[in-house]
Nucleic acid binder design. Structure first.
Lengths: 307, 307
DNA sequence: CTGATTGATGCAATAAACGCATCACTGCAG
DNA sequence: CTGCAGTGATGCGTTTATTGCATCAATCAG
């Protein structure tokens, strides 16, 4: 959309923190970009950016403006999506942020099955912790967020939730692999590898430790589940995973998953949500419905397994 | 704002119903305007307007787009207002629609006293019935609406309300002028001049007639209070007015106002409100607060008079 | 049919945007 | 302190996009 090109320019400068840098990514010269910004500030009557010796930074007025700009750009996408929708083709782009736990199996399946129905819809799926997830929503970089135990904030509007209990992950040769249900004392008896503090699971575990009054033996901390899972094969320790992140069958694998007693570590809530007050593009709204449905189904089958 | 000039063009064409007509009001040639629209439709992939033999009309896609455009333009005004606000000067423009009853005294006082505080704020005050008031809000032609007994709709978001009882208006020489409180039988005993059906007072009266089972003797119907008030001097009949529409003192006037028994015609609610979900410009929001306060005060003094 | 009105289009004139080279300024490393 | 690398601002010639005029095809009222 041509008319909001100037807005896109400003957005890029705000993100890049420098006019020249933004001009580079926008594939225009810095002079052109600089002049457009000067013209915009002229129109507005106040500077949008503060000029620093090493670039620019949004002024207070710029903060107000950039929020408007991002809202408008996102809303234009929604309108285009709705227009495309009423001409029959369901097209558009859905941008999702979610925790690592969901990515490998659940999200991949969901995206794939949605794209089977609507091949014209494209996706971008980004991994991030629950703090930045909210930021991504407010800056309109993401349409949907799927996060475990999200921070309480007025910006986040839940569209669905499902309870998720933690599972213990360990090598098949680990002594605790003998048991099918692990208690708190079991968890204390072995070293553990944990995700980083911004992770929702970590939050649940910290809370459990606080409540029980004794700490787990943390030997590894990493933001990569892959790394942790591989490490489990080298040393006898355990780690954790959400039920939804488990592969379907694990009979042959070297890595096994075991349930944890609810009384040891309480289960937490997995939320699907969007930015509060925003009207989502058609494709994003429909996909959100789909994963909420899928989560509810997963919840039911989970409970059946328990029962 | 230059970047939303194309949007303003489309809006004007939509309102005017013809490209040439819109080009005329925009002070450009129809060629230029036509081409901008063609370019926009090209970008969008679908036509915005249906081409009729005698002009153009919004297509379905155009309806979606025009709503976005009006939202965007109004929101830009809000941002500009907020930016102006943080640089100290409180400037901006407030557009109000309200029923006839409020205009002559109440609204004039309110606008005047607000402008005494903030001379940089300009006003436009339009009179319309309660149906079109909502339309004016949804099309962003008005920021605020002050209406009596508004239509129930999800678009209207009340910000304050005050109960208003009807007063009877008549010539000083009218027989009923002797009494200080009029009952239903009094109203039946004389011809009446009524506002048109879209008026809120009329709605209350129709409801009262329906409930009582007998009709008032309607001899005049007009959408001009001025006309009705003048007519009262030529024929012995009565009309109605809201308490808030009364002049402060009426001792010397040829026209007098009398209370009506609540049991005859129940009082209705006067609402101040805005478009649901909209964030108002600073000036409009502050002015809304001011008149809500003023209405509450008026309500209190009214009740004191009654007590 | 005739005249008036509508939106679309080819072509030349105009206005806006762009890119290059350069300046003035700041902070950092030597 | 000095030179260097990085930043945003500015003058000028060129390129691109936009505008306006004249005109066409289609439609409708009388």
């Amino acid at each position: 959309m041509k008319h909001l090109l100037p807005l896109h320019y400003i957005d890029t400068v705000a993100r890049s923190g420098s006019i020249r840098g933004a001009a580079n990514t926008l594939a225009i010269t810095s002079t052109a970009l600089n002049r457009r910004i000067l013209a915009m500030e002229e129109e507005l009557g106040v500077p949008i950016f503060e000029r620093l010796p090493r670039g620019v930074r949004l002024s207070t007025a710029g903060e107000l403006l950039i929020q408007h700009i991002r809202t408008q750009m996102a809303d234009m996408e929604r309108v285009k999506s709705q227009i495309a929708d009423l001409s029959g083709v369901r097209r558009g782009h859905v941008s999702i942020v979610c925790g690592q736990a969901l990515l490998p199996h659940f999200m991949a399946e969901q995206v794939a099955s949605y794209r089977r129905l609507h091949p014209a819809v494209t996706f971008s799926v980004k991994v991030c912790d629950r703090n930045t997830a909210i930021d991504q929503l407010t800056s309109f970089d993401a349409d949907l967020a799927v996060v475990f135990e999200p921070m309480r904030t007025s910006e986040f509007q839940p569209m669905g939730k499902v309870e998720q209990s933690l599972k213990a992950v360990m090598s098949r040769s680990h002594p605790l692999a003998e048991k099918s249900l692990l208690g708190w004392s079991d968890l204390l008896s072995t070293p553990v590898a944990l995700p980083t503090a911004s992770n929702g699971m970590r939050y649940l575990l910290e809370e459990a430790m606080l409540r029980k009054g004794n700490d787990l033996e943390k030997i590894i901390e990493s933001d990569s589940y892959d790394f942790i899972r591989n490490y489990l094969r080298h040393e006898h320790c355990i780690s954790f995973q959400l039920g939804i992140g488990l592969p379907q069958e694990n009979n042959t694998s070297e890595i096994v998953y075991r349930d944890i007693d609810e009384r040891a570590v309480p289960s937490g809530d997995l939320y699907v949500g969007q930015l509060k007050g925003r009207v989502l593009p058609v494709a994003a709204a429909l996909f959100a419905n789909a994963i909420v449905k899928a989560l509810e189904f997963q919840y039911v089958t989970n409970n059946e397994k328990i029962a």
